[in-house]
Design a protein around this nucleic acid. Structure first.
Length: 147
DNA sequence: GCCAACGTTGGC
DNA sequence: GCCAACGTTGGC
């Protein structure tokens, strides 16, 4: 990638309460993926607008678990959210890529100085967040991924 | 179950 | 257009 600079993969983090939508449910959707509907926050919305097919994201369980449990890939770009009658909000589709061999907990993230600027720490209520490339690489290591 | 953070709403 | 009140999210 990189030639022309427009196919660079960007990294994200999607939060979900496992009560409402869990990693196993996401995995069960397979290649078809799942519309990430219901986001009603302008900042989170901006992130989804900026996403491109092929971008990767962490799947984070909020409230219960409080850990990054897997990796998802954006498989459909930003489009209107059919659950929104005001036509104001949109969504992207994400599909499960792989589970984390070792889930990375919020406590671990907070205990890691290099991750202390993550939105997960500094803007804990933002449900869709950008992740820097160096943060992505480090968390992948911590999660037990190689390469 | 509590509380802090923060976005949204509505009165002025 | 400001700001107080309120609701929601999410960590603890």
């Amino acid at each position: 990638m990189g030639a022309g600079g427009q196919s660079v993969t960007h990294y994200w983090l999607f939060k979900s309460e496992p009560n409402a939508w869990s990693w196993p449910q996401q995995v069960a959707k397979g290649e078809a993926g799942e519309p990430w509907s219901g986001v009603r926050n302008a900042l989170a919305q901006q992130q989804m607008k900026a996403m491109q097919v092929g971008d990767l994201g962490f799947f984070y369980h909020s409230n219960i678990g409080k850990e990054i449990v897997g990796v998802v890939e954006v498989c459909q770009a930003f489009q209107p959210d059919p659950t929104d009658s005001t036509q104001k909000w949109g969504l992207v589709y994400v599909k499960a890529v792989k589970p984390c061999p070792k889930p990375v907990t919020l406590a671990q993230v907070k205990a890691t100085p290099a991750l202390s600027n993550m939105k997960l720490v500094t803007m804990s209520r933002l449900s869709v967040q950008p992740v820097r490339e160096d943060e992505w690489a480090l968390i992948c290591q911590m999660a037990g991924f190689h390469g």
